[in-house]
């Protein structure tokens, strides 16, 4: 069963990360790298997205496509990346997500077969 873990950043988290000095920041990145290594066998693919202010949103539900600046929901929490995992059930997905060492919110969404 495939699940997508959507990693969600908050403003606080972003600010904390930005405030980290060289070695601390290195350590934070190393933890994330370690997490991907630890779960290599269940992760089918993953991507880190660039910052939300680089996003562009297009709305297609009107006469003309409407292009606007920013992510599709304006809010304090934005998706910053995802990992697709292949595990037996939701409990295993939750176990993988529980050890995620970075941004403070993870949405676990089952993917269609």
């Amino acid at each position: 069963m495939k699940y997508v873990l959507l990693f969600v950043e908050t403003e606080e988290f972003e600010a904390e990360l930005a405030a980290l000095e060289g070695p601390d920041r290195q350590a934070a990145y190393a933890k994330v790298q370690q997490w991907f290594d630890d779960h290599r066998e269940v992760i089918t693919h993953h991507t880190k997205l660039l910052a939300g202010d680089t996003a562009t949103t297009m709305r297609l539900d009107r006469d003309e496509p409407l292009v606007s600046d920013g992510p599709f929901v304006e809010g304090k929490e934005i998706v910053s990346g995802y990992a697709e995992i292949d595990v037996a059930d939701l409990d295993e997905a939750l176990r993988v997500a529980r050890s995620w060492p970075a941004c403070p919110v993870v949405e676990i969404r089952p993917a269609m077969d």
């Binding site: 069963m1 037996a88 059930d89 939701l90 409990d91 176990r95 676990i108 089952p110």
Partner: peptide, 14 residues
């Protein structure tokens, strides 16, 4: 069904 919530007794750590 869709999210495959398991039917079992959770493992000791949970």
């Amino acid at each position: 069904r869709a999210a495959r919530i398991p039917y079992r007794i959770p493992s000791p750590d949970e």
